[in-house]
Measured scan of single mutants.
Amino acid sequence: NITNLCPFDEVFNATRFASVYAWNRKRISNCVADYSVLYNLAPFFTFKCYGVSPTKLNDLCFTNVYADSFVIRGDEVRQIAPGQTGNIADYNYKLPDDFTGCVIAWNSNKLDSKVSGNYNYLYRLFRKSNLKPFERDISTEIYQAGNKPCNGVAGFNCYFPLRSYSFRPTYGVGHQPYRVVVLSFELLHAPATVCGPKKST
C-alpha cells in the first residue's frame, strides 16, 4: 500500500533546468501520483496529453512515469509533440509517434532571462542524422558540413554543433524561455507502482 506522493514538485520547481540537447530525465515510481497538483503548480502555457485524457490521469496506474525536463524558446514548444519536425524535434528531443503522456510548458522569462542575455541554455544546431525517439546526444564533436574532414577544428564548413540561446527579458514571447516537462507513461507487463490517489488504497 503506497502512500508517499510522487515528487513532481522537485521536477517542476527545480531551480535550474537542463539545456534541451542534454535534457534531464527523472524516473518516478512507487508513489501516489496526484496530477491535479500539477494544474495548480504554475499558470501553464501548455498542458497537452496524448493517448490519455488529462482529467482521467488520477484514475490510472502505470509501471513507471518518466519526467523529462529542459528549456526551449516559446515558438519551439509546438515541436514537443508526436510527429513534429524542426531543429528541436530533429536534433535535441524527439517524441515517438505513439507517445503516451503529457507535455507541460510554461513561460520562464522571469527566471531564465537576463538583461545582458542568459547564454547558459544550449541547443544542438547541427547533426548528421535525426534523433530516434527519446535519444539523447550530448556530443560536442565538430560538425563537418563540407567534404573536407574537420579534424576537430572549427572553421570553414566545420561547425561547433551547439548554439546558445541568449534569453533577454525584452524579447518577444516566441523568443522567451519556456520550461518544459514531458511526462511519459510506461505500461509494462509488470506491477503498477505509480497510481492516482483513488487507485492507491
Rank of each mutant, 00 (worst) to 15 (best):
residue 168 R to P: 00
residue 72 I to V: 15
residue 46 T to S: 14
residue 121 Y to A: 09
residue 54 P to L: 15
residue 36 S to A: 11
residue 42 A to M: 13
residue 146 G to Q: 02
residue 95 L to A: 02
residue 63 T to Q: 11
residue 31 C to A: 06
residue 68 D to S: 04
residue 174 G to C: 03
residue 165 Y to S: 00
residue 83 G to W: 08
residue 118 N to G: 06
residue 60 L to H: 11
residue 63 T to L: 09
residue 5 L to M: 13
residue 177 P to V: 01
residue 52 V to P: 09
residue 73 R to W: 00
residue 188 L to S: 15
residue 133 P to T: 05
residue 5 L to A: 14
residue 162 L to R: 04
residue 54 P to I: 14
residue 126 F to L: 06
residue 186 E to H: 11
residue 8 F to K: 04
residue 51 G to P: 05
residue 74 G to T: 02
residue 153 V to K: 15
residue 191 P to A: 13
residue 46 T to P: 07
residue 166 S to A: 15
residue 126 F to C: 06
residue 19 S to A: 06
residue 150 C to H: 01
residue 124 R to A: 00
residue 63 T to D: 13
residue 134 F to R: 07
residue 151 N to W: 10
residue 93 Y to N: 00
residue 124 R to T: 00
residue 113 S to E: 00
residue 123 Y to N: 15
residue 82 P to E: 01
residue 194 V to F: 10
residue 71 V to Q: 01
residue 200 S to Y: 15
residue 102 C to H: 03
residue 148 K to W: 09
residue 75 D to N: 08
residue 6 C to F: 07
residue 194 V to K: 12
residue 6 C to T: 06
residue 47 F to R: 11
residue 86 G to R: 03
residue 140 T to M: 13
residue 172 G to Y: 01
residue 171 Y to E: 00
residue 34 D to K: 08
residue 123 Y to H: 11
residue 21 Y to V: 07
residue 53 S to P: 11
residue 115 V to A: 12
residue 78 R to P: 11
residue 146 G to I: 02
residue 126 F to Q: 03
residue 4 N to G: 13
residue 74 G to F: 03
residue 89 A to F: 03
residue 104 I to P: 00
residue 122 L to M: 15
residue 19 S to K: 03
residue 62 F to Q: 07
residue 98 D to Q: 10
residue 32 V to D: 09
residue 37 V to P: 11
residue 132 K to V: 10
residue 158 C to L: 01
residue 85 T to D: 08
residue 166 S to T: 07
residue 200 S to R: 14
residue 61 C to S: 07
residue 199 K to D: 12
residue 59 D to K: 12
residue 81 A to T: 05
residue 45 F to W: 14
residue 185 F to H: 06
residue 103 V to S: 01
residue 179 R to Y: 00
residue 88 I to M: 04
residue 49 C to E: 01
residue 180 V to G: 01
residue 197 P to I: 15
residue 84 Q to Y: 07
residue 40 N to V: 08
residue 177 P to I: 01
residue 69 S to R: 06
residue 118 N to F: 04
residue 57 L to Y: 08
residue 58 N to T: 11
residue 199 K to P: 12
residue 186 E to Q: 13
residue 131 L to I: 13
residue 78 R to H: 10
residue 173 V to G: 07
residue 114 K to C: 08
residue 88 I to P: 01
residue 171 Y to H: 03
residue 129 S to R: 13
residue 170 T to Q: 07
residue 72 I to C: 07
residue 182 V to G: 01
residue 162 L to K: 03
residue 97 D to Y: 10
residue 29 S to P: 10
residue 35 Y to K: 09
residue 88 I to Y: 01
residue 30 N to S: 09
residue 86 G to N: 03
residue 188 L to A: 15
residue 59 D to N: 13
residue 134 F to P: 02
residue 76 E to M: 03
residue 193 T to A: 12
residue 80 I to V: 10
residue 74 G to H: 03
residue 136 R to H: 08
residue 72 I to M: 03
residue 141 E to P: 07
residue 22 A to R: 11
residue 134 F to Y: 15
residue 114 K to T: 13
residue 111 L to C: 08
residue 3 T to M: 11
residue 71 V to L: 05
residue 177 P to A: 07
residue 111 L to V: 14
residue 117 G to M: 03
residue 141 E to D: 14
residue 26 K to H: 09
residue 33 A to M: 14
residue 89 A to I: 04
residue 128 K to W: 07
residue 191 P to D: 14
residue 163 R to L: 15
residue 143 Y to D: 00
residue 39 Y to R: 14
residue 126 F to M: 10
residue 160 F to N: 14
residue 34 D to M: 07
residue 110 K to T: 10
residue 72 I to K: 01
residue 56 K to N: 13
residue 182 V to L: 02
residue 19 S to I: 02
residue 76 E to F: 03
residue 86 G to H: 03
residue 69 S to M: 07
residue 112 D to W: 04
residue 96 P to L: 03
residue 103 V to H: 00
residue 94 K to V: 03
residue 67 A to C: 09
residue 85 T to I: 08
residue 195 C to F: 08
residue 85 T to E: 07
residue 78 R to A: 13
residue 125 L to K: 04
residue 7 P to N: 15
residue 105 A to Y: 13
residue 28 I to S: 06
residue 23 W to M: 02
residue 74 G to M: 03
residue 20 V to E: 00
residue 12 F to Y: 06
residue 139 S to M: 07
residue 155 G to Y: 04
residue 107 N to M: 03
residue 104 I to E: 00
residue 189 H to W: 09
residue 4 N to C: 09
residue 15 T to V: 11
residue 181 V to I: 09
residue 52 V to W: 08
residue 191 P to I: 09
residue 108 S to A: 10
residue 24 N to I: 07
residue 10 E to W: 08
residue 131 L to N: 03
residue 192 A to Q: 13
residue 192 A to D: 13
residue 77 V to T: 06
residue 16 R to L: 11
residue 9 D to V: 11
residue 176 Q to N: 03
residue 81 A to Y: 04
residue 45 F to Y: 15
residue 200 S to A: 13
residue 161 P to W: 04
residue 34 D to F: 06
residue 122 L to T: 10
residue 185 F to M: 13
residue 193 T to R: 14
residue 95 L to K: 03
residue 127 R to G: 05
residue 32 V to L: 10
residue 53 S to V: 08
residue 43 P to W: 09
residue 48 K to A: 08
residue 48 K to H: 09
residue 23 W to G: 01
residue 113 S to F: 01
residue 158 C to G: 01
residue 151 N to I: 08
residue 18 A to H: 11
residue 23 W to I: 03
residue 137 D to I: 04
residue 56 K to M: 12
residue 88 I to F: 03
residue 5 L to Q: 12
residue 86 G to P: 02
residue 43 P to G: 11
residue 196 G to H: 12
residue 24 N to K: 15
residue 162 L to W: 02
residue 71 V to N: 01
residue 187 L to T: 15
residue 143 Y to L: 05
residue 34 D to Q: 09
residue 101 G to H: 02
residue 46 T to N: 12
residue 121 Y to T: 04
residue 71 V to C: 05
residue 109 N to K: 07
residue 2 I to W: 13
residue 48 K to C: 06
residue 199 K to C: 10
residue 163 R to I: 15
residue 22 A to W: 07
residue 189 H to Y: 11
residue 42 A to K: 15
residue 106 W to K: 05
residue 97 D to Q: 12
residue 191 P to E: 13
residue 191 P to R: 13
residue 21 Y to F: 12
residue 169 P to I: 04
residue 194 V to T: 11
residue 50 Y to W: 14
residue 39 Y to V: 13
residue 29 S to L: 08
residue 93 Y to H: 02
residue 175 H to W: 15
residue 183 L to V: 08
residue 46 T to F: 10
residue 110 K to W: 07
residue 100 T to Y: 14
residue 4 N to Y: 10
residue 75 D to I: 05
residue 129 S to I: 10
residue 165 Y to C: 00
residue 181 V to H: 03
residue 17 F to M: 08
residue 36 S to F: 07
residue 3 T to Y: 10
residue 168 R to N: 00
residue 97 D to E: 13
residue 61 C to D: 07
residue 141 E to I: 09
residue 125 L to Q: 11
residue 159 Y to P: 01
residue 142 I to S: 03
residue 78 R to F: 07
residue 95 L to D: 00
residue 58 N to Y: 09
residue 84 Q to E: 10
residue 156 F to T: 06
residue 18 A to G: 10
residue 41 L to K: 14
residue 86 G to T: 01
residue 178 Y to S: 06
residue 156 F to G: 05
residue 72 I to W: 01
residue 161 P to R: 04
residue 83 G to D: 08
residue 171 Y to F: 05
residue 89 A to R: 03
residue 75 D to P: 03
residue 150 C to Y: 01
residue 167 F to M: 00
residue 162 L to N: 03
residue 134 F to D: 06
residue 137 D to P: 02
residue 62 F to T: 10
residue 22 A to L: 07
residue 89 A to S: 00
residue 36 S to D: 10
residue 125 L to N: 04
residue 15 T to S: 14
residue 160 F to T: 12
residue 69 S to W: 06
residue 57 L to A: 08
residue 175 H to E: 01
residue 172 G to M: 00
residue 52 V to T: 11
residue 4 N to T: 14
residue 42 A to R: 15
residue 31 C to H: 06
residue 31 C to D: 06
residue 36 S to Y: 08
residue 195 C to I: 08
residue 84 Q to M: 14
residue 56 K to E: 13
residue 174 G to Y: 06
residue 91 Y to A: 06
residue 178 Y to E: 02
residue 18 A to K: 08
residue 97 D to K: 13
residue 113 S to M: 01
residue 157 N to F: 03
residue 67 A to Y: 06
residue 37 V to F: 15
residue 91 Y to H: 07
residue 38 L to H: 05
residue 133 P to I: 04
residue 45 F to T: 15
residue 70 F to P: 01
residue 188 L to M: 14
residue 162 L to E: 00
residue 102 C to S: 02
residue 104 I to Y: 14
residue 126 F to G: 03
residue 97 D to M: 13
residue 55 T to D: 14
residue 166 S to E: 00
residue 116 S to L: 09
residue 124 R to S: 00
residue 106 W to A: 04
residue 96 P to I: 03
residue 108 S to H: 01
residue 1 N to G: 13
residue 77 V to E: 02
residue 191 P to W: 09
